[in-house]
């Protein structure tokens, strides 16, 4: 039993969950008030939009690309959600679908022209931000009531955020890790040549994953305004880096195909809690960003140690 628990493979898979648990226990110790339905809700509800953005980023990383525009994209979705979707739901829904279509088209463009995704998505980040400013020039707008109602749902035992996060993690896990087409999608990132030799369309996998990224980015924006009640074009610029950090923290790697959906959700939660933990510690703000980076490096260092132990065997 103990032997299986100490295998590098198990340790590596358990690391994200382990770091989240340690952090959560530390927070409960520092601030016992957090150990309640109300407290958990306050601590974690902003983690849900980050988790969605992280899943979106993970979709892109799966096919060995990187999305530097997801933060601005979430901002645009938030802007549309707080204006058009509320006033003229049909136009709003059409605009959101259009956004996802643009994302799918980006995937096609990157594949067909063989462009570096970093450049394309970085360029698109300015387009998203510009569009968001056009839709919502000054902060404001109002979230549609049904989104607000979903995000403030009072679920039994645990806050809605936790159920939603578990749900997303599990659904994406089964879609990407357990289904047969999921294997193809991951393979397209990990070993594109053999996937295409086996007769699968690489174009189709790229478009699918980018469209999925657009979809989860949309969920991120909508859940975010469900919490904030109104939007700001700059609301989620930080999500770009947070989402990348979340994927990596959760066990994903930059090589394509090596991902972990449940880990990504846990990674997003860990990042959110890390910030709260540092503020409960009363660390001066100037040190907080550095300390947050320190926590990240610590977890990744653990993973490197585990990987090395595995290689030695």
């Amino acid at each position: 039993m103990i032997a299986t628990l100490l295998t590098p493979r198990f340790l590596r898979n358990a690391l994200p969950a382990l770091s989240l648990t340690v952090l959560l226990l530390a927070i409960f110790y520092l601030q016992p008030r957090a150990m309640s339905y109300f407290g958990l809700n306050l601590l974690l509800n902003l983690a849900l939009p980050i988790a969605f953005a992280t899943i979106a980023q993970m979709c892109i990383i799966t096919v060995n690309d990187l999305d530097l525009g997801v933060g601005a994209y979430v901002g645009l979705v938030a802007a549309i959600g707080a204006t058009w979707l509320n006033e003229t739901p049909l136009l709003g829904a059409a605009a959101l679908l259009g956004c996802i279509a643009v994302y799918a088209a980006l995937g096609a463009l990157i594949h067909l022209r063989n462009l570096p995704s970093i450049v394309v998505t970085l360029g698109m980040s300015f387009v998203w931000l510009g569009l968001a400013l056009l839709v919502l020039p000054t902060p404001g707008g109002k979230v549609p009531d049904w989104i607000r109602a979903i995000m403030t749902l009072k679920t039994p035992f645990l806050p809605f955020t936790i159920y939603a996060a578990i749900g997303v993690g599990v659904i994406v896990h089964f879609g990407l890790m357990r289904s047969s087409y999921g294997v193809v999608l991951r393979g397209a990132g990990g070993n594109p040549r053999s996937v295409s030799r086996a007769g699968w369309s690489l174009l189709r996998t790229k478009v699918t994953m980018f469209a999925l990224a657009g979809f989860f980015g949309m969920l991120s924006g909508l859940s975010l305004i469900g919490l904030t009640t109104s939007a700001d074009a700059n609301i989620a610029l930080r999500y770009t880096l947070l989402s990348i950090a979340g994927v990596i923290l959760g066990g994903g790697e930059f090589v394509g195909g090596r991902i972990s959906p449940i880990g990504a959700v846990i990674g997003a939660m860990t990042l959110t809690l890390a910030a709260s933990f540092l503020s409960f510690l009363r660390l001066p703000p100037d040190w907080q960003i550095g300390a947050q980076g320190g926590i990240l490096i610590l977890v990744l260092a653990f993973r490197a140690v585990i990987n090395r132990a595995e290689a030695r065997r």
């Binding site: 306050l42 700059n234 930080r238 910030a275 709260s276 503020s279 703000p285």
Partner: peptide
């Protein structure tokens, strides 16, 4: 309490932390 970066989402989380405190 000052947020490390001038970001809405961070300040929202900060306010939630202050409620908890």
């Amino acid at each position: 309490f000052t947020t490390a970066e001038n970001q809405v989402t961070e300040q929202a989380a900060q306010i939630q932390n202050l409620i908890l405190q």
